[in-house]
Write a protein that binds this DNA or RNA. Structure first.
Length: 473
RNA sequence: GCCGCGUUCGUCUAGCGGUUAGGACGCCGCCCUCUCAAGGCGGAGAUCACGAGUUCAAAUCUCGUACGCGGUACCA
């Protein structure tokens, strides 16, 4: 295939939604797969709703995901001359015409049509205006919009994902290209830009599919070949409704702040609608870029399964080097401890943490001594008669040299045997003393990482606490 | 209302005329085990939305119906 040119064209009216992220991802993958060009274009023609900060947020989110663009970002707000030129040309060629009806008039027609049970379509009365009259009224300062003269023939949208759909002649009315205040509208700017940028493949959400025939008509009017379309199914929440904040998180930034790795999110998103076949699932961006094909994208909407994202994220955490993990977890708050200790801690947490948030939380035991103890744990092990055993263990562990997990465990096992209980009966209260919780990474390896002093202090403090339960709060 | 699209285990999906309908998440059980995970092994879970048709043969092709979603702007 000749090097394709694709674009991702978000409008900065919100932060990057995962649906948009997936669209960007597919465009990126497709470009990379075929040695093409990935263009970023910001569709900010709606000045009232577009915000500059949001543009930066979108760029940041894409960068974070690893979706680098080759050209742009281009801003439609800075390309007005191009649209005006195209509009003038279309008008001069008679492919578009001025329509002088006011918005109020149209609104009234629409209301009347609806009242009559029908649907409104612009009747095209502006078509019959002579060039002279049109020019005269425009020169006289009368307000007008520019409408496309939609050809009276069927419009075919050939879509790699959704298949071929034919829209019968007359299905479209002569839609507006340029508003009466001179602002070019979405459909128009999209096509003008796609032509100007030499876009060969348009990959976007199905919500744009109903717009596609308009674009087909526009490309024809512009005298340009139609790009190949690929309309992607929606991403829905678990309830089958369009994914939104209501479902917990819908924006890339939100997942990032939940401690999701960029690689995991990208991998997960890629699998929502696209499948490499051969039961492959875990793949890096570059691995996907080697085999990505638009033809393997499914047409149906898919639900966003947070559980599976978390699982994938856990998988990525497991295979990310500890040093890197520490960097990634830093924004979520790391205890003030030497790096060597934290590095050991990360290794122990690696198979357990599903998110960076969990990783950071798990690392907190290497900081302050536990301030609180799990209620269920206190209920089970907060018995005064356990205090002497714990004190004995504290002393024995303190005497272990070197202070390494094998020896520490041996000491604990010996004490358990002497006391006539299983190791669990000793280890669990100690775990509670050390971490405040009944669930943690392997105890003796944690103790080794924590060091002699901290271990002794925590066990003794806990022993004191359970020895005098009344004093405990 | 009208127009368009979609429909395989709860979820993501493989499948592209003949399969015991495969995998993954989740769930359950077993193993491992100081707890929790991870990991290994095994299991339950899909009359392929429904109804017609084409065919020796249909999850796969065609047409209806139902349900879901999207669109229906001088928004994007």
């Amino acid at each position: 295939m000749a090097a394709p040119r694709v674009r991702f064209a978000p409008s900065p009216t919100g932060s990057l939604h995962v649906g948009g992220a997936r669209t960007a991802l597919y465009n990126w993958l497709f470009a990379r797969r075929h040695g093409g060009t990935f263009i970023l274009r910001i569709e900010d023609t709606d000045v009232e709703r577009s915000k500059k900060e949001l543009t930066q947020q979108i760029l940041d989110a894409m960068t974070w995901l690893g979706l680098s663009w080759d050209e742009g970002p281009f801003f439609q707000s800075e390309r007005q001359a191009l649209y005006r030129e195209a509009a003038d040309r279309l008008l001069a060629e008679g492919r578009a015409y001025r329509a002088f009806e006011t918005a109020e008039e149209l609104e009234a027609q629409k209301k009347a049509a609806e009242a009559a049970g029908g649907s409104f379509k612009y009747d095209g009365r502006g078509r019959s205006l002579s060039k002279e009259e049109s020019d005269r009224r425009a020169a006289a300062g009368e307000k007008f919009v520019l409408r496309l003269r939609v050809p009276d023939e069927p419009l075919v949208v050939d879509d790699v994902v959704q298949g071929r759909t034919e829209f019968p002649a007359g299905a479209l009315d002569d839609f507006v290209l340029v508003r009466s205040d001179g602002h070019p509208l979405y459909h128009f700017t999209v096509c003008v830009d796609d032509v100007a940028m030499g876009i060969t493949h348009v990959v976007r959400g199905v919500d744009h599919l109903p717009n596609a025939p308009k674009h087909v008509a526009l490309f024809r009017a512009l005298g340009a070949p139609c790009p190949v379309f690929a309309h992607l199914g929606m991403i829905l929440g678990t309830d089958g409704k369009k994914l939104s904040k209501r479902h917990g998180a819908a924006g890339v930034e939100e997942f990032r702040s939940q401690g999701v790795l960029a690689e995991a999110l990208a991998n997960f998103l890629a699998l929502l609608g696209w499948s490499p076949g051969e039961d492959r699932e875990r793949m890096t961006l570059s691995a996907m870029a080697e085999i990505f094909e638009l033809e393997r994208i499914g047409p149906s909407p898919s639900r966003f399964d947070h559980e599976k994202l978390l699982w994938l994220n856990g998988q990525y955490i497991q295979s990310t080097p500890g040093e890197r993990l520490l960097e990634l977890a830093a924004p979520f708050g790391l205890p003030a401890r030497d790096e060597a200790t934290l590095a050991k801690g990360v290794e122990l947490l690696r198979p357990r943490a599903k998110t960076l948030v969990e990783l950071a939380a798990g690392l907190s035991v290497y900081g302050e001594d536990p301030a609180a103890f799990e209620p269920a744990g206190l209920k089970k092990f907060g018995k005064p008669e356990l205090a002497p055993v714990l004190r004995t263990l504290a002393a024995r562990l303190d005497a272990v040299t070197p202070f390494a997990h094998a020896g520490l465990e041996e000491a604990a096992r010996a004490l358990a045997a002497e006391t006539g209980v299983g190791l669990g009966q000793i280890a669990q209260p100690v775990r509670l003393a050390i971490t405040g919780s009944l669930a943690s990474p392997p105890l003796f390896e944690m103790i080794e990482a924590l060091g002699r002093d901290t271990t002794r202090r925590r066990i003794l403090a806990f022993a004191d606490r359970i020895a005098a339960p009344a004093a405990a709060s």
